[in-house]
Design a binder for these strands. Structure first.
Lengths: 180, 180
DNA sequence: CCGTTTGGGTCAGTATCATTGACCGATCCG
DNA sequence: CGGATCGGTCAATGATACTGACCCAAACGG
């Protein structure tokens, strides 16, 4: 008998024939578990296509994120980019440095504040970003088509609701005015 | 003039006053960029709460995923779990091993096939999983409430659409019948 | 019954993404 | 001028993942 350590095994959650009163709570719990699963599988496959391309260039998701957000906001400062990504300076540096050395991104000193380094994609950087973009476009567009326009609107509302304060502010800044 | 290397700077994408014919294409492009942003920010904050708890226990997201899926399918085999997570045996081992040593997960030999190791949460494991679950529940439930039931349905449809073949099969198995 | 396949575990080495804490130079601003 | 800010950099660490090779034990099939 292989049991020198008799651990308590948790009971499996019930899946049917519930006491009437708990029904609503149970549904909410299942709803949540469903959401966890959806987000795990969905996000993974959303990024999978771009990850594949990146792997072949000894880059990773972090590089893609920089390309994406710099492309979205040309002239963004390093500080603002850090705020969007919510990573440390060092983590960004390790990704941004090679991107600049390899000619995907350039920085130019700010005119108003010369301490700032304004980031922008080169043509080469924009081309790579576009390649990654097109790959994800296929995935997302198919999901949008299958789901329909109303579903897309719902998807947006829920995803936005998942964000915290800080992310929502960054998000609104990105989607909002071209530049302050 | 600090320009020994004159890189081409890509033009910023236009944001208004488009040639009429390209309008639709432009909207689709913006739609996609919006989706990318939503998924990045949304997923990050969805996992942030649980990540915080895990960090305090020298665990990471990978541990959470194991607890989640084992909790969802008690008695799951190692092979099936590998299929769901889509990682290598070695990667799973490095996470599963400590979880078993620390008494969060137990394995029992399969009755039909004694090569199999059937995984289950201990009470301790179920308690931790619940703690993580409750944390994410707050985030998701608030997003659901804000967005409304119709939006939730749309969210589900789109997330499911993002999945590839393999993920969709795993997903359907999870949400489907209690056990084969 | 014996050989092959399958389920699971393990070793060694490598890569990416992230962290902390400290420190520096250049620039801005009161 | 002096402090605050923007950006870069050092060193060390940890989590997650990968490949390829190899092993044991149990199941399966001719």
């Amino acid at each position: 008998m292989p049991a020198p350590r008799q651990a308590q095994i948790a009971e499996a959650p019930e899946r049917s024939t519930l006491p009437a009163g708990r029904n609503l709570l149970f549904l909410r719990e299942e709803e949540l578990r469903l959401a966890q699963d959806l987000l795990f599988f969905g996000y993974r496959d959303f990024t999978a296509g771009a990850d594949e391309i990146l792997a072949g260039m000894s880059m990773g998701r972090a590089h893609h994120r920089v390309l994406h957000f710099v492309g979205r906001r040309p002239g963004i400062t390093v500080g603002d980019l850090l705020g969007i990504l919510a990573i440390t300076k060092q983590s960004l540096g390790r990704v941004l440095q090679p991107l600049m050395e390899d000619g995907y991104v350039v920085q130019t000193p700010g005119r108003a504040d010369r301490r700032q380094r304004l980031l922008a994609l080169t043509d080469k950087g924009a081309a790579l970003e576009r390649r990654l973009f097109e790959r994800q476009r296929e995935t997302v567009m198919q999901a949008y088509r299958e789901a329909g326009p109303a579903a897309v609107e719902g998807f947006r509302r829920v995803m936005r609701g998942l964000m915290g304060e800080q992310a929502r502010a960054a998000f609104d800044m990105l989607e909002g005015p071209p530049a302050p």
